[in-house]
Amino acid sequence: MNLLRGIILTTKKELNDYFGSPLVYILTGLFNAIIGWLFFNYLVGAKNLTLLNLSHSVLIPLFGNINFLFLFLVPLLSMKLFSEEKKFKTLDLLFLSHLSQTQIIFSKFLAGLLISLFILSWTIVFPIILGFSGYNDWGLVFSSYLGLVFSIITYLWVGLFCSSLTENPIISALTTFCFLLGMMLMVLTVNATHIEILNTFFQYLSSPFHYESFSRGSIKSYNLVYICSFSLFFYFLTSKSLESRRW
């Protein structure tokens, strides 16, 4: 069947699901309250409000915190994507439909991404507020958002995979969270060692390291290679995990 029509139909269904439950509204509210409060604190804490200072003591830490908060949000957003379908046996309906497995996985991913972007989109008010008082380093804002989107993509793939492993949303959320936190801690641990190769290797594997190059505004080609290979790898794992239920 038409590739797009299938993806649109299922993505729309997922989005309806999201907006039909209070979870998304609660998360959006909570998330933005925390970010607003942090923004206010950083602003008060910054001594003199020069352009350079605004970037370094307000926006960069703020975006860093957004990235960190998504570590908690994404597992909650992705937990139901497959586990609930498995629990209520509706996955068979999708498998027997004209949708291919790739379409099923991508529409779920797309729904998760869109809902994360919805939550993220509210934070655009903070740079805009600064813009009113003369802030104009929009390049940094843009690359930070790009970095956030890339981070969210990696988080979501992990979440999607964990969700396909179990019938229980809570377990799915917990495993996703542990995995993501582990990845974050890996960077910290590895920074403490002095073996150069090990250092670079583990840094490359963990997504926060790549986020940093975005937030510094210096995107390298290996950042993009990382995102693509990470996504492909987890797509592969997810599709294997879905296939395994037939055995």
């Binding site: 069947m1 029509r5 299938g6 139909l9 299922t10 269904k13 309806n16 699901d17 039909g20 209520f88 046996k89 509706t90 996955l91 068979d92 309906l93 999708l94 027997l96 439909s97 004209h98 949708l99």
Partner: peptide, 26 residues
């Protein structure tokens, strides 16, 4: 196929659900 446990999305309306299934079943 009607499986032993019908594959239903509990929070959809009946009409909406059948429409969705018609869509994904081509």
């Amino acid at each position: 196929f009607l499986p032993e446990d019908p594959p239903l999305y509990k929070n959809m309306l009946v009409e909406e659900y059948i429409k969705f299934v018609a869509g994904i079943r081509g």
